[in-house]
Design a protein around this nucleic acid. Structure first.
Lengths: 213, 213
DNA sequence: ACTCGGTGTTACCGCAAGTAACATGCATGT
DNA sequence: ACATGCATGTTACTTGCGGTAACACCGAGT
């Protein structure tokens, strides 16, 4: 029968694809985002053209690889965001989940954030398209949760999106810096960021004798 | 005399260096961060090896180029941060200054944020080193201002650094997203972000009938 | 036996980073 | 006047990577 044969082949191809992605994963974990196609092929025990047959080009492979990790991370974040607790606790849990993930596998995280941007075709002035899709997806996800659950009045939908992307960026930049310098424990970082979101910056008093802020 | 000759040469070299940087600037503005050394050399009316003599390698050139723009942007930000107004107004002015800059020259901004990361020598697990130095510098700068002027009690120094990097990341990610989709005016974006920093997320009420947030 | 589609290979192209070796102009010391 | 540096410039090369073309093998259906 034609269809069964088709599915068999597709299954086989899918398994192959997963094996290749796992090999690519190991190489990226070892060599960072600039892992070469040759290295990935060698790790998988095959040669370059096969990779190209499966993924089209390097961008395709990287996109597939990124999707796996991004999906996994987003699942964890959704779980933290949906936990039964009050708002502050859930925000802190989400921050902590993200920071745990990047702490556990910095190379992967680094790859996700800076996917070796090729794509010289997108000339013009449409920045942003290239930029880390993980950040965008996290931002949209968070925006959705905020927009769904908070009563922000008219224009609240848009406000939620700004906040979603803003909070994700805050989390990302602070995490990036923290991972490099380790100036404090993860718990302290989480608390500090939550405090920032809770308006402590606006509420803090000026230093005595200073010019004010 | 030896010294005068030396200085003459150095002046000439510096002028040359500046010319080369301006040429590189034009090419990056046109081709984006993936501009080739050949293209830059051609734009400057010379050939590759001269670039290498001046800047060592591509990373060196990019670092020099980034320093120029970064310094300029930081000067603007400092001015906005130091303006004589109340805290909210100054925060908004700073956000607006940054967003104006990236809006005016997205290619440059894009180059500054993702400097075509070479550097496969920094293997290991020290993420962050590679990441956009502009973000780091802005974060530290803001941290310093916050730490100097706000009374944050014990541990305030560290808190200020977390907040500095966090706020810069928020500004960056939101700006990146905004530049790509243009979902609202710049003024609205500024207001929304300032609202976020002023604790409106924590203060907002749950939507009626929802699961709460 | 013969084609056909999928899987695999070797060998190549094009291009960009980076380098070596050679050429030239211009000040200086004798 | 002439040789000596030294910076400035060039051509031509190597290396390495992304990507592709052409060919080889193998199992299934007619």
């Amino acid at each position: 029968m034609n269809t069964t044969q088709r599915t068999d082949q597709q299954r086989s191809a899918d398994r192959r694809r997963r094996e290749l992605l796992e090999a690519a994963d190991r190489v990226v974990l070892r060599d960072g985002p600039q892992a070469s196609m040759n290295a990935i092929a060698a790790e998988a025990g095959i040669t370059k053209p096969i990779l190209y047959r499966h993924f089209g080009d390097k961008g395709g492979l990287y996109a597939a690889l990124a999707k796996r990790h991004t999906d996994a991370l987003l699942d964890s974040l959704r779980a933290a965001l949906d936990a039964p607790a009050d708002r502050r606790e859930r925000v802190e849990a989400t921050l902590d989940t993200y920071l745990s993930a990047i702490e556990a596998r910095p190379q992967v995280y680094r790859f996700l954030m800076h996917p070796a941007e090729e794509s010289q075709s997108d000339q013009g002035f449409d920045v942003g398209k290239h930029s880390a899709p993980l950040l965008r997806r996290m931002g949209e996800e968070l925006a959705q949760v905020i927009g769904e659950r908070l009563d922000l009045g008219p224009g609240g939908r848009q406000l939620a999106r700004v906040w979603g992307h803003g909070i994700v960026g805050m989390m990302h930049a602070a995490g990036d810096w923290w991972l490099g310098e380790r100036p404090c424990s993860r718990a302290e970082l989480v608390r500090s960021l939550a405090d920032l979101l809770w308006g402590r910056l606006a509420a803090a008093g000026d230093k005595v004798g200073g010019p004010g802020f």
